[in-house]
Each structure stands twice: as structure tokens, then as C-alpha cells.
Simulated scan of single mutants.
Amino acid sequence: MQPEYVFETEMEVRDYECDIQGIVNNANYLHYTEHTRHLYLKSLGVSFAKLHDQGIDPVVARMNLQYKAPLHNDDVFISRLAIRKEGLRYVFLQDIYRKDDNRLAFRATVELVCLVNGRLANSPEYDKAFGFIK
């Protein structure tokens, strides 16, 4: 079952992200998903830096990663995300598709929690931005 995506962005594989086999090194997918989450926040008008200055910091608590099909140098891909909230956790479902054939290359479930002034807490600011409270 495909998630209901709320955001997507297009990116391109850069040559230095590939290993000796000519495929994207596995760790770079984490950069792609993190960049997608930051662009999503920006699209909502949320400043990651300003919230940090207020003592509000989302941090990754858990990740489940599935590598489906390799990306290669110069591949263009679409990074999509869906989000839900479970208790204090924001659960991002993130998929990366190769643009030329729409094949799923990577899937991640990323769970984030917020630290408010260094303590685990709910963030009304993020809840509002993500549409969990009106």
C-alpha cells in the first residue's frame, strides 16, 4: 500500500556520492531523506534554525531502511514523504524513486522526537506546522 505523500522534491545523484561499483553509497540515502525533511519544513514556513534558537530540536530516534534498486551517477530521482504522529513520535515514511522508470530505489521509516530545552517533550510548534493541531 502506497502512503499518502504530502511532499516531494527532485534531486540528482552526484558522482562523488557513488562507490567503486558505480552505485550510490548506502549512507547517502540518509542525506537525501534528511534534505527532503528539511525542504518539507521550509515549504511549511518553518525555520529549523529559529526553532533550535527557541530550544526546540527534532532528533532521529529510529530508522528502518530498505534498499530496493540502486541509483547511479547522474540519475535523477524523486524523494517523497508522508508523515503521521504516534504519541511523541513523528513518523516519516520516505520513498525515493528513479525518475526515468519510476522504480522504487529506497524506502525509509524515520521516527523523530523533539527535545525541548534538552528534554523529551511534545512540540506544539511542529504539531501545528505538520497539521496535527489547528
Rank of each mutant, 00 (worst) to 15 (best):
M1P: 15
M1Y: 12
Q2W: 10
P3G: 08
E4F: 08
F7M: 07
F7D: 09
F7H: 11
E12A: 09
E12K: 15
V13S: 10
V13F: 11
R14F: 09
R14K: 15
Y16S: 10
E17H: 12
D19C: 14
I20N: 09
I20Y: 09
G22N: 02
V24Q: 01
V24F: 04
V24K: 00
L30F: 05
H31M: 02
H31P: 01
T33S: 07
T33F: 06
R37D: 04
L39F: 05
K42H: 10
S43Y: 07
S43I: 07
G45I: 01
G45N: 06
G45A: 05
V46Q: 10
S47I: 00
A49I: 11
A49Y: 11
D53E: 15
Q54C: 07
Q54E: 13
G55E: 06
G55K: 08
I56R: 10
D57Y: 04
P58E: 09
V59D: 13
A61G: 15
R62H: 09
R62G: 05
Y67I: 01
K68D: 09
K68C: 14
P70H: 08
L71W: 08
L71G: 03
H72G: 01
D74V: 07
D75A: 08
D75V: 04
V76E: 09
F77R: 03
I78K: 08
S79G: 02
S79P: 03
L81P: 10
A82T: 03
I83V: 15
G87R: 12
R89C: 06
Y90E: 02
V91Q: 04
F92C: 06
F92W: 08
Q94W: 03
Q94T: 01
Q94Y: 01
D95K: 12
I96M: 14
I96L: 15
I96Q: 09
I96Y: 07
Y97G: 00
R98H: 04
R98A: 06
K99L: 14
K99D: 11
D100I: 06
D101T: 10
N102R: 12
R103L: 14
R103F: 06
A105M: 11
F106L: 03
A108T: 10
V110Q: 07
C114N: 15
C114S: 11
L115K: 06
G118M: 10
R119S: 10
R119W: 03
R119E: 14
R119Q: 12
L120R: 12
A121Q: 13
A121N: 14
N122Q: 05
S123A: 10
P124M: 08
K128I: 08
F130K: 00
F132Y: 04
I133S: 13
K134T: 11
